[in-house]
């Protein structure tokens, strides 16, 4: 599907920098997401990963640098417009619309794909009626796709279990038929069994829907298992990138995660072993 438009990378960020007052949260990061691929962004807490996400989705404007998606410049564009172009996301701390049902949450996700306006909605024209039915059916389908039991579709999002809320959030993001899905720590709070399920689910999204996925993740098992390419941020700077194995053995990465001393100790041990 998406390959048809062009063969370059789906998303390219070049020289992206974000400063908050004197603090540089993201420092000159360049980065590309290929089509139909799963790539990861990792780094210690406070490394600037979520800030980077927020820049890609338009919640923040970068201080410097450019972001282009599918051949279009989206630097500092409005979040809803970037969403309409095909970038959907989930949040680190689940942000569902608590007083809406699971189904309604997913229906909101389809907002940009709908046309009904003020007067069409008041008069409930046949066109609007059809659209509404279609959107409702599709939402139910998506919820089943992510594995939410039909009995829970009409439950308020607040009342769902934590794992189900994660599912609904992914369904809501998928509702806009995105080309790129950004997942911010999707396995947070999941047990190994659930993380494994999610890993397989991401692969399904890539293979069946042709999506690209950018993953922020702390669970190294998930990251190493699923990503074709890993980028590591520390203190806002890109300190390493490559395939999972390259990154895992990069001394700078080990240092960033475990501290300098521990990294040296490991290095000597490796040397001995």
């Amino acid at each position: 599907m998406s390959e048809a438009t062009s063969n370059g990378p789906l998303l390219v960020a070049s020289g992206v920098t974000k400063q908050f007052g004197g603090l540089t949260a993201v420092d000159d990061v360049s980065f590309a997401i290929p089509r139909n691929a799963i790539v990861s962004l990792i780094g210690p807490n406070g490394a600037g990963k979520t800030t980077f996400f927020n820049i890609l989705t338009g919640l923040y404007k970068p201080t410097l640098g450019r972001v282009s998606f599918d051949g279009r410049d989206i630097t500092g564009g409005r979040p809803d417009k970037i969403m309409a172009l095909g970038v959907a996301r989930t949040f680190q701390n689940i942000r569902l619309f608590g007083t809406m049902t699971a189904l309604e949450n997913v229906m909101v996700g389809q907002h940009t794909r709908m046309k009904a306006g003020l007067f069409g909605s008041i008069l409930r024209l046949p066109r609007v009626r059809r659209e509404e039915r279609h959107v409702r059916d599709k939402a139910a389908e998506l919820l089943s796709f992510v594995g939410l039991r039909p009995a829970l579709h009409d439950q308020l999002a607040t009342n769902l279990s934590y794992g189900d809320q994660r599912r609904v959030e992914i369904a809501r993001a998928l509702a806009s038929d995105p080309k790129l899905l950004l997942l911010d720590e999707p396995t947070a709070g999941m047990n190994p069994q659930e993380s494994g399920d999610l890993t397989r689910f991401m692969e399904r999204l890539r293979d069946e829907l042709g999506l690209s996925i950018l993953l922020i993740e702390h669970d190294m098992k998930v990251v190493m298992g699923v990503s074709e390419h890993v980028t590591v941020l520390d203190h806002g700077e890109k300190i390493s990138e490559g395939d999972a194995l390259t990154v895992r053995t990069d001394p700078q990465v080990v240092e960033a995660y475990l501290g300098k001393q521990e990294a040296e100790r490991q290095r000597t041990e490796d040397g001995v072993g």
Partner: peptide, 16 residues
């Protein structure tokens, strides 16, 4: 209602 509940999430889901 989405805007009322969570503006950041709403705009990220495509609500202008």
């Amino acid at each position: 209602i989405a805007l009322r509940e969570d503006e950041v999430a709403a705009v990220s889901m495509g609500v202008p």
